[in-house]
């Protein structure tokens, strides 16, 4: 069941992004930025947390989930250690993903060249 909800919610978020690209003529990079910021803001009012409880990966996998994770990590650390936690917590949940992306990107760049 949670597969279906993840599919529907994740798909809907992507379709909304496509709508912004085609109708408002935004660049994909602009939409990514918009969604990551929207995820953080929705996180701030507690809405994104509820969306994740409902849709799990459907809300976590889109980049809006990335913005939420940054906001959530910052808040969590701030509550734990105070003001500085806002900064040390920013990459609490997302740092691992960025590290994997950097390491794999570097490794792949050494062995593979663009083809498409």
């Amino acid at each position: 069941m949670n597969y279906l909800i993840a599919f529907l919610v994740g798909g809907a978020i992507c379709a909304l992004a496509q709508l912004l690209i085609d109708v408002l003529k935004l660049q994909p990079a602009q939409v990514m930025v918009l969604f990551v910021a929207a995820g953080a803001v929705l996180s701030g009012i507690g809405a994104y947390e509820r969306l994740i409880e409902f849709a799990q990966a459907g809300a976590l996998i889109p980049v809006s989930g990335f913005g939420h994770s940054i906001a959530r990590g910052a808040l969590m650390e701030a509550e734990r250690i105070g003001f500085l936690g806002l900064f040390t917590g920013a990459f609490e949940f997302t740092g691992g993903g960025i590290a994997v992306a950097v390491l794999l990107a570097a490794a792949i760049a050494v062995i593979a060249s663009p083809k498409a």
Binding site: G10, G11, I13, C14, A15, A17, Q18, L20, I21, P28, V31, M32, F35, I61, P62, V63, S64, G65, F66, G97
Partner: peptide, 8 residues
Amino acid sequence: GAGAAIPI
């Protein structure tokens, strides 16, 4: 399109 761009 966005189906590939927006996910992580």
